[in-house]
Design a protein around this nucleic acid. Structure first.
Lengths: 224, 224
DNA sequence: ACAATAGTGTCTTTGAGACACTATAGA
DNA sequence: TCTATAGTGTCTCAAAGACACTATTGT
């Protein structure tokens, strides 16, 4: 029961953001080469130190990082997990709070065009800085798990979207092909969607929807 | 784009464990009065600083804390979330990685009897140290959410258990009463359980089971 | 024997899925 | 008018739930 009051070294605390988007039915992640050591020049997730004098919590760190590095506010942001250990950062024992961010791909395209980020298929990544390959795998896994039970995939689309678009996103993320009529009925039953207006589509115009809430829990596996 | 290389103050990193058990069909959490300031004497979750020279990661911190403070290895341990901010700890900007631990209540009873911990109904908690009321709410919410879709509630029982026992735990945690015949069929179908032996029960002896895996994802809401 | 719990059989109803159909645009 | 996509109607079949039943023990 003797408790030493010796000051122990504090670990490093960082935040990393896995910003995912859907391109050609495949999940892509936003990466940028590191500007400084360690892993200088190596591709990495946007991330950085928590600033105790600036950030209200780690979610605000995530938002600040995206704002400062990408000038960008994601459609969806949620905490995924915290990875930690002595070896994942050569600077010392570190913990990184990993955030999952989602956004429509075409809003990210300008950032890719002017070189702030590059977008990479999450299933075909090169060796990244730190343990970022693993962090991305965890974030993608979380997205896939939540996609079956919640309206999360809609955040990969624009603010307004049609039901066929949600279905395409749903199928791309879960890998589960569904009958269009049944998908429509099921997702409407959940109450996750709110009608907005009729929008032009490829041929017949389509009813557009917005999310009724940022995230609706379906209470069931929509794919089954 | 100027990046100051000034050394910023590092935040505090702690781990807190919400050890939950089922007593009389109600979730209880293990708490102990704090031995030191801040919040000296106030009830709190078992927790402590990450030790960079000792802990392989935050999960090992959680295990060490339980071992040192309670002499105890939980049946189930998983990361729940990370809470952070400047105000949650008077010592400074802090982040706490919260772990959810589960165990059979009667294995905790000796610890309660010799005063290492006290067990409190999670729905009737006094004001605790730090933001621990919130952390417990988050951990309990996570348990309830996972209970519908996974075999997690079995970790609130002994290593061997009967199907009526799982059902009682399931109903207590989810609040959803189920028909015994249907519950039996559904949980057996999931493949989460492995027959062990016949054990004496209140009247007719019962088939006992163990978990086939530490955690089976049902792929569907067992309650619906 | 009776009470209490463990476990099975089976009927009914719900809803998931298949699929044929209609609707409305562009080419 | 043909094709591509949006959206509806409806049938079938599997599974969820209700519930009556049997099984095996302690008291």
């Amino acid at each position: 029961m003797t408790k030493t009051t010796a000051v122990h070294e504090r670990p490093i605390l960082t935040v990393d953001v896995a910003l995912l988007a859907l391109i050609d039915e495949r999940l892509h992640v936003a990466l940028a080469p590191r500007a400084t050591a360690p892993f200088k020049g190596r591709l990495a997730l946007p991330g950085g130190y928590v600033r105790v004098d600036e950030d209200a919590d780690t979610e605000q760190t995530a938002r600040r990082v995206l704002r400062e590095k990408l000038g960008f506010e994601p459609a969806h942001l949620e905490q995924a997990c915290t990875e930690s250990g002595p070896a994942r950062d050569p600077r010392g024992w570190s913990a990184s709070v990993v955030y999952l961010a989602l956004h429509a791909a075409d809003a990210l395209q300008p950032l890719a065009d002017d070189g702030r980020i590059s977008l990479h298929d999450v299933e075909a990544l090169p060796a990244l800085a730190f343990d970022h390959n693993r962090l991305i795998a965890l974030a993608a896994q979380r997205l896939r798990a939540k996609s079956a039970y919640t309206s999360i995939v809609a955040h990969l689309l624009h603010d307004e979207f049609t039901i066929p678009q949600v279905q395409a996103a749903f199928e791309a993320v879960t890998g589960h092909r569904m009958n269009a009529a049944n998908f429509r009925r099921k997702i409407l039953e959940t109450g996750a969607l709110k009608e907005t207006r009729i929008v032009p589509a490829a041929y017949r115009p389509a009813q557009a929807y917005r999310l009724a809430e940022p995230l609706t829990d379906f209470g069931q596996n929509l794919a089954r």
